[in-house]
């Protein structure tokens, strides 16, 4: 079996992209490595070179300016969970990041890794999808932006090719008016357990409380993070109220079709959980602008 022969530390993103090109598919980007080490052991992937971007200063920051938050994609889940700006501006994201794995995983696993690993219920990707995050990618043809929601392909596979390109930055627009975000999750235990269902929402409202934009995401309900579009549509143009949120949650439960899973529970049970978690999340998000 092929194994890792070199673990390289490029000085910047440019050098990292050049190394990937130089090794023509034999090299692979590594950041936290918490998933990658397991895949290598299981023989799912067999890179001979690892290009480590976890310490690149260009990918290690959180900044807030011009109405948007920019996050270096090598930030760890622990760092994002504890970051005061993230907590204040996008609590759904800090709460999601706090739910990943255990402290030992969160201390090293990165946001970009969570995106590229493409587990549909990834606890940081679900809130980032609800927040409408955009990702900056650097590859052989330069850098470009892609919406996060277009990067998930199927379970365990994203459209980002880690042998060619790197997610360098995540950008999230901060609404100028009233808004709120929330993340909810249910799992067999609080640590080291994959979610049975998780849900994240973002609501934007007029000054009088009329909902003008909504994103509702629930997982794992499909092979990629699932947008409850009927539920979202139901909210638009109406005044926030417990009744409205109950109706939207009902719609989200109805349009979600989680499958029966020996690990996560029956589809029927999880449909009810989607409804309940979406309702809780909507109420919590709305409480932030009420």
């Amino acid at each position: 079996m092929k194994k890792v022969e070199k673990h390289l530390f490029p000085k910047n993103v440019k050098e990292a992209v050049e190394l990937l090109a130089e090794y023509k598919g034999e090299a692979r980007i590594v950041s936290g490595a918490t998933d990658l080490m397991l895949w290598i052991r299981d023989g799912k992937v067999s890179p001979s070179v690892l290009v480590d971007v976890s310490d690149l200063p260009e990918m290690r920051f959180v900044s807030v300016s011009d109405g948007k938050m920019s996050i270096g994609s090598a930030m760890t889940h622990a760092e994002i969970a504890a970051h005061p700006d993230v907590k204040r501006i996008f609590p759904a994201l800090s709460d999601g990041c706090r739910s990943v794995g255990s402290p030992q995983i969160r201390n090293i696993a990165t946001l970009a890794g969570n995106i590229v690993s493409a587990q549909p219920a990834a606890d940081s990707v679900v809130p980032m999808t609800a927040l409408g995050a955009q990702c900056e990618l650097a590859g052989p043809d330069g850098t470009y932006m892609r919406p996060l929601c277009e990067l998930s392909k199927k379970v365990g596979e994203s459209y980002v090719d880690p042998t060619k390109e790197i997610i360098t930055r995540i950008e999230i627009k901060i609404p100028s008016g009233k808004y709120g975000t929330a993340f909810k999750r249910i799992a067999p235990r609080e640590a080291m357990a994959l979610p049975v269902v998780n849900a994240a929402v973002m609501l934007e409202a007029e000054d009088d409380g009329t909902i003008k934009a909504a994103r509702i995401v629930a997982s794992p309900v499909a092979v990629v993070p699932f947008r409850a579009k009927n539920a979202e549509a139901h909210l638009i143009g109406k005044k926030a109220s417990p009744k409205l949120f109950a109706e939207a949650a009902e719609a989200a439960g109805a349009e979600a079709s989680p499958r029966d899973s020996l690990v996560r529970g029956s589809g029927e049970y999880r449909k009810v959980l989607v409804k309940d978690l979406v309702e809780q999340a909507l109420i919590q998000a709305a409480s932030l602008f009420a």
Partner: peptide, 20 residues
């Protein structure tokens, strides 16, 4: 679990060179 720069990590899934 060991501490890397003061932070606990699961050393079984950390590539050794990351300690460099």
């Amino acid at each position: 679990t060991v501490l890397v720069n003061g932070l606990p990590v699961d050393s079984c899934i950390v590539p050794a060179m990351k300690a460099n």
